[in-house]
């Protein structure tokens, strides 16, 4: 009896292992292929259609040995962005010249700042709704669910008009204002965490005479650090890869993700664009590498203890 159980267990584990290996190959092969392609020249890949093979030494000499698709990125990419609009009756003009370095910095600020702000605000709101027995808390929770179901159409022109009139368009202040929100999956995540958190912590602090503010900052937030840092890291990655929001709301502060979208979709002319598909793929690789390193280094932190089980109400 025990023998057959062991055998069954072994078979199941091996089967799962095989499936996962296949999946892993399906993930890693395209990435490796992408990297190899980024070492080919446009003539090699696009015109001569050397899709599968090793870079042709006659045509891809520079791109392979001197990594010229990558060096060209830093040398040739100079994105000129400008925007001018009216904030009320005042004319505002923004200009910027952006190299890959500028875009990298913008990405960092955008992703780090945005993730910290939105995770923090979401955390606080979730705590308040979960722990405070106020009717409004239930309404706010309900609102979160409702907003997740409504497909909002045509809000872009209205948002732009609003941001411009407040002079929050194309500005970091405006960006953080937009990020000062709660809602979505992470609200539910924090909410579930706080629901299961014992009331004993708060009660003990109350007995000691601590104010509500004190309780929140000295007791609750430290307890939430693990889940907070996990959420921040996940949102950081999402914002790092987000090209839509910079495209729509921060035109003169392009992030690297926006840069990639720009070069892959808008087929611009000039220097870097002549690098064709391999150049675009090289840019994609550049976007992926920092987060990959970050992820591998902080893997256990990200894969920390979060769950959204047990939602009530």
């Amino acid at each position: 009896m025990k023998k057959s159980k062991n055998k069954l267990n072994k078979v199941v584990v091996i089967a799962l292992f095989v499936i996962l290996v296949v999946y892993a190959i399906s993930m890693l092969f395209p990435l490796l292929w992408g990297f190899l392609t980024s070492l080919k020249s446009s003539l090699d890949f696009d015109t001569l259609r050397n899709v599968l093979g090793f870079p042709d030494m006659e045509y891809s000499n520079d791109t392979f040995f001197k990594l010229s698709n990558y060096t060209s990125m830093f040398k040739d990419i100079n994105l000129s962005r400008s925007v001018s609009f009216f904030a009320g009756n005042e004319e505002i003009i923004h200009n910027s010249e952006n190299t890959v370095w500028t875009m990298l910095f913008n990405s960092l600020f955008y992703a780090l700042g945005g993730s910290l702000v939105s995770a923090f605000v979401t955390m606080c709101m979730a705590y308040l709704c979960a722990k405070y027995k106020v009717k409004a808390a239930k309404w706010i929770y309900g609102m979160v669910i409702v907003t997740m179901t409504i497909p909002t159409v045509g809000s872009y022109p209205s948002t732009i008009t609003l941001l411009r009139s407040l002079n929050l368009y194309d500005s970091w202040l405006g960006y953080f204002f937009q990020k000062f929100h709660f809602g979505g999956m992470y609200f539910l995540l924090f909410y579930a965490f706080y629901e299961t958190l014992s009331d004993a912590y708060c009660e003990a602090a109350e007995i000691d005479g601590a104010s509500q503010l004190r309780i929140m900052f000295s007791v609750i937030i430290p307890l939430s650090m693990t889940i907070f840092s996990t959420v921040t890291l996940i949102v950081f990655v999402q914002l790092w890869n987000d090209y839509q929001t910079p495209l729509l709301y921060m035109p003169t502060k392009p992030t690297l993700a926006f840069g990639i979208h720009y070069f892959t979709n808008k087929t611009v002319s000039g220097g870097f664009a002549e690098r064709g598909e391999p150049g675009k793929i090289a840019l994609c690789m550049l976007l992926a590498i920092p987060v990959l390193i970050l992820f591998i280094a902080l893997k256990d932190k990200i894969m920390g203890n979060i769950t959204i089980g047990g939602i009530k109400g």
């Binding site: 990435l31 996940i234 890869n241 993700a257 979208h261 994609c284 992926a288 992820f295």
Partner: peptide, 8 residues
């Protein structure tokens, strides 16, 4: 897929 952009 969560880390690397869906674009890529």
């Amino acid at each position: 897929p969560q880390i690397i952009s869906s674009l890529i």
